[in-house]
């Protein structure tokens, strides 16, 4: 598939914050792409830059002292360097975002139906009646029972799960081709989490859109994505098909992350593998591999020189490591 047909192409994207303490490379040069009708997972711990990356792709730059370089093309539209006015052309119609906290991303003093209406009337030029009909349709689409009555409800009258459904409906109002979901289920209960993830899956197929799931939870991406990107300290350290990354990962960080998450199948008092230390301070990033200080396999080279992404055996799978784990596929390590 040629690059122009891809829905999202990100090349060397870097987001740097200028702070009182110095420059913070929140995203330090990231490249990946996304096919149409695909679900991609972006996984990382706090400080990995996953949230900043998703917002940079959206073109949301919070403050004046942020520098963005590289390129992010959403359906052919270059987000980096675009003006607010230009970006407004793609917000909602090409790309929309679902935020983590449904309480703060909905206006608490506005009826939920009106919040969906707003986008429809302003962006799609619908009249009042048509917008209302469409909003109720959207509420029904995201599985809100008796949508016509709920149209007049305020966000505070809905439960967390219902609010997140409303947020999704708002995001879908102008039929975006890419839905960016930033920790969409964090803070929701287990059973509600499953409902929302199933809903996103279903909507993706029904509306023929692509979804990017940004999360810290490997459980969220395991069964919901076709490919995943693992981030650490603002960079991609491993990427590939979900199964490949889970079962044939080469980067020690990916393995450590997988092994340190508790599993339901573990017996009580199972000792968990841990990663020593904590995620790095972005103000004091070492010149070599950012994970080297916590890595059991680190050598001098890891501390000196930063590894770039290199292809693994399976097409599409690559990792950034000088001393990768032995492949489980019987291919010699480079």
């Amino acid at each position: 598939m040629s690059e122009s047909e891809k829905l999202l192409v990100v090349k060397d994207l870097a987001t740097t914050f200028a702070t009182a303490g110095g420059l913070v490379p929140a995203v330090g040069g990231v490249s990946f792409d996304l096919e149409r009708n695909e679900t991609l997972g972006i996984v990382g711990e706090s400080g990995s830059g996953k949230t900043v990356l998703s917002r940079t792709i959206m073109g949301l730059q919070p403050r004046a002292n942020v520098t963005v370089t590289g390129s992010a093309r959403v359906n052919g539209f270059e987000v980096v360097g675009a003006s607010e006015k230009e970006k407004r052309q793609i917000w909602g119609t090409e790309v929309a975002m679902v935020f983590q906290d449904p309480m703060t991303s909905l206006n608490p003093v506005m009826r939920i139906g009106k919040q969906i209406d707003e986008a429809l009337r302003v962006r799609m030029g619908m009249n009042r009646a048509a917008a209302r009909a469409r909003a109720i349709e959207l509420l029904e689409l995201v599985g809100i029972p008796s949508p016509a009555q709920r149209y007049d409800a305020y966000p505070g009258q809905l439960s967390g799960g219902m609010r997140q459904r409303v947020v999704i409906a708002t995001a879908l109002a102008c039929s975006p081709k890419l839905l960016m979901a930033d920790e969409p289920t964090t803070g929701l209960d287990v059973t509600i989490q499953a409902q929302i993830l199933n809903l996103l899956d279903e909507l993706k197929d029904r509306l023929k859109m692509s979804v990017i799931l940004v999360t810290h939870d490997l459980g969220v991406v395991a069964t919901r994505t076709s490919r995943i990107v693992v981030m650490y300290a603002g960079r991609i350290v491993e990427t590939g098909s979900t199964r490949e990354v889970f079962y044939h990962h080469r980067m020690p960080y990916t393995r450590a992350l997988l092994e340190s998450s508790p599993k339901v199948s573990n017996h009580p008092h199972t000792r968990l593998a841990t990663i020593p230390g904590r995620p790095p301070n972005l103000l004091k990033l070492a010149q070599g591999c950012s994970f080297a200080p916590r890595c059991a396999y680190a050598t001098d080279r890891c501390h000196q020189e930063r590894p770039e992404l290199q292809p693994a055996a399976e097409p599409g799978h690559s990792f950034a490591c000088w001393n990768p784990l032995p492949t489980t596929r019987g291919v010699a390590a480079p």
Binding site: V190, T191, Q193, A194, Q195, L197, N198, D217, L218, G219, V220, A222, T223, T242, R243, F246, Y247, L258, S261, K263, V264, S265
Partner: peptide, 18 residues
């Protein structure tokens, strides 16, 4: 238990969601 998200692509998908 059925809704618990296991970090394993081969874990059964949530066939029965509450």
């Amino acid at each position: 238990l059925g809704a618990a998200l296991e970090a394993d692509p081969d874990s059964p998908m949530h066939s029965q969601v509450l």
